[in-house]
């Protein structure tokens, strides 16, 4: 017999909680874990923030489930404030991401590693296989004027100018 409810068997005894509550909590936990994976692994700053929002969604779902469990408005109230804070966070974070992009031309979280220990080499990605997508053909312009002076350090940080 497949156990209908795993937790029903894990739980030692006592009144089982409301089914919806438990299921909601499970969904919240999954969303939170997925968001965590994303924020730990994905290098794109925008995706990182999307993942942070995903974690917040997980938390919101959990809070509403708890609110239901306890028969109290507190959880839902908290979710409203989570929404507020998320909006603020998104506004400021996107501004910062824009600023970062303006400096390096990349949305790479690994572009900033100057806080590393002295004498430690810069973390560099392994060479990636070429993308099969058709090579973009950019228009070629006739060189004019003089080449601007280039800063070696800045070239490391910048992908394109």
């Amino acid at each position: 017999m497949m156990p209908a409810t795993l937790l029903g068997m894990l739980a030692a005894a006592g009144m089982p909680a409301d089914g919806l509550t438990v299921n909601g909590l499970l969904v919240g936990a999954m969303l939170f874990a997925l968001g965590l994976v994303g924020i730990l692994t994905r290098r794109n700053l925008i995706v990182m923030f999307l993942c942070a929002e995903l974690m917040l969604q997980g938390v919101s779902v959990s809070l509403v489930a708890w609110s239901r469990h306890h028969g109290d408005w507190g959880g839902q109230m908290l979710v409203i404030f989570v929404l507020t804070v998320a909006a603020c966070e998104a506004a400021i974070a996107l501004v910062l991401v824009l600023g970062a992009f303006a400096r390096t031309g990349r949305l790479d979280s690994q572009a900033w590693q100057s806080l590393r220990e002295d004498n430690l080499p810069r973390a560099v990605d392994h060479a990636l296989p070429p993308i099969d997508a058709a090579a973009a053909s950019w228009p070629k312009l006739t060189p004019a004027g003089v080449l601007p002076e280039t800063d070696e350090d800045e070239l490391l940080e910048r992908e394109h100018v």
């Binding site: 894990l10 739980a11 006592g14 909680a17 509550t21 438990v22 909590l25 499970l26 306890h70 408005w73």
Partner: peptide, 26 residues
Amino acid sequence: LTLSIGRLSAEPAAPLAAEPAVTVAA
């Protein structure tokens, strides 16, 4: 988290406030 959700659900829900202002309708 799954494990602990299972543990917690075994316990009867206790009202948080001594007198919950409004009960959420299921």
